[in-house]
Write a protein that binds this DNA or RNA. Structure first.
Lengths: 187, 187, 187, 187
DNA sequence: ACTTGCGGGACCACCCGTTCTT
DNA sequence: AAGAACGGGTGGTCCCGCAAGT
């Protein structure tokens, strides 16, 4: 059911993802929802998003820990995201983007979780950049922020075009930007 | 009414923007909507989006034509977007992003219009980059795509944080990336 | 416009016939309706119905005055109605039936006009029957009522079956009934 | 709720019967409708019509099986319909007539059900007529069709006049027609 | 004199997310 | 754990006036 929820949110956004269709897709009976998720739609979406986020974060961490350097790690990660997007027929993009765009006004814990997720991704990248010698810390942080931003935007462009080309362009240019910020690169 | 529509879509996304609230905000009676937009919500949102896009595009063109070079033009444009976002209490971001994220499955003309808009922005930037000497054309195109992507993602991050800091980081790093691609820069 | 109104009422009934579609079919501009028919939909439908009724009544009168005797006159009239129904793809039946069935509660002048129309048809038949020697007057009246009823019901059955067979059956049996009531027939 | 639906359709026709009023009359909460009738208005009307039809059919069968001969059976049945019509303040007529007249264009299963109902009534009458010796079969069928038609039309006339007199006239004349077709009658 | 454009609510059928009962 | 029931709300369309504008 969490998978169906995540998929439907990716397709239609938070408000467009109806409980009826979620239940129908996952074969869950109606009453079970409020048994397992007393908080209703909010809780369901929260948990579904957290689960998707966990997977994505794990992938990012794995690439950063692969010992191939930040340039190659980021490049591979972005291309992996592109592949996943294409494989899912351009459904599976970023799990937090639809929530952030649909729930601006609401002070829900959902939005806070999405914000924390985005912060966490930036932190992971920033630390990897710093470890690779990018300095000062503010530079590493700015580069991490830009990387996450370019990935989010790249997923948007790829979805709009139904093509992975925007993401390959982003992978190349962001890789170049990271390379240029590395200490050994000035030479 | 178009403004209210655009604003509400920014706040809640396509499916979360109800006609009732749009009408209530703009003081429009229900029957007028059907008169001016016989196509219903789809047409209304399309025209509202096109209007917002037009304004944004104009601003981008103006900055690119200001004769300050692509680095400074892009930097100023991103910071202008950040200012606008902050001034509107983090409501006014990109007009096409919510539509793209909410209407994946639908073959609506809306999605096509958004796709064309994104293409146009990339084209404007690519041409400016090429005119500044960035070559080959594919490089200029990739840089333009990455710039648009980073801006879209930056707006998302800024909204999630309710802060313009992500956009200033993006402005700086994207500026640096463009600078590094300019022909005169290597020396 | 009156024709379009009559046709649409035959297809969808009074409440199902929307002014929008009437105007669209007849090419009439919106404002003209209330110029020519200040009474709105009620008046429009009333006049359209009266016009259709006039045509039907004329046909009935012509058949009755053709000097072929009441049996043949009624038979020809019913078959003419069947032909018209078939020619119009089972749209053109009785112009008053839909109004009577749709406006039971309403005390509109429309219903009174329909009632008077039905009375008039019965009167025309009753007089023809009496002139042919059917007596007493109450018998002629009952036969006239039954003839109109069978025609109305026959149109209903024909429409439901999309076939003129029910009307030919009605024509035959009602003809036989009239024949049996004629004074010369017993012998 | 089914009763309220049937009654409202009799009063205003298919398009004139609003779900709101049906719910208000029957005291049903809004959401229950969609729960019990996922097919919406179409399914609701279909089931309501079928229920009304069942009752009417039962009454017809009972009269035909009463062993009083077809003439008396039909006479009693028509007069029973007249009584029911009067008792309900001229609301309860034929349950299928409004549907047939309101839904000409639609290929709904509703119309098919109405057609089958009308066929069934004709079949019941035809079989009774045949059992009573009316021959050939085509004659019995034509008489059955005419009987149903006269009843349908008689209900229309009675409603328009707000009087049962048309139905008593129909009962008498149709009875005479059946009598004339019986084999023992010529003698 | 006649048409147009627009405004105005009420209402449509449908479906939402939620709660209650078993 | 699950089906039935609940109202409020969805986007959409209804039939109808009132204003200018030919």
């Amino acid at each position: 059911m969490l998978e169906a929820t995540a998929a439907l949110i990716q397709e239609r956004g938070f408000h467009g993802a109806g409980l009826n269709e979620i239940l129908a897709r996952s074969g869950t009976p109606r009453g079970s929802l409020y048994h397992h998720f007393p908080g209703g739609k909010g809780q369901l979406v929260l948990e579904a998003t957290l689960r998707s986020v966990e997977v994505v974060t794990r992938v990012l961490e794995d690439h950063l820990a692969a010992g191939v350097g930040p340039v190659e790690a980021v490049r591979r990660y972005i291309l992996a995201a592109a592949e996943e997007l294409e494989r899912s027929n351009y459904i599976v993009g970023c799990p937090v983007a639809p929530v952030v765009l649909d729930l601006l006004a609401d002070p829900a814990p959902l939005v806070e979780a999405c914000r924390d997720t985005l912060r966490n991704w930036q932190r992971l990248l920033r630390d990897a950049f710093s470890r690779s010698g990018i300095a000062p810390p503010a530079r590493a942080a700015a580069l991490a922020t830009t990387t996450v931003a370019a990935l989010e935007g790249g997923l948007l462009l790829a979805r709009a075009e139904r093509s992975t080309l925007p993401l390959t362009a982003v992978a190349g240019e962001i890789g170049a930007a990271i390379q240029a910020a590395l200490p050994t690169s000035p030479r």
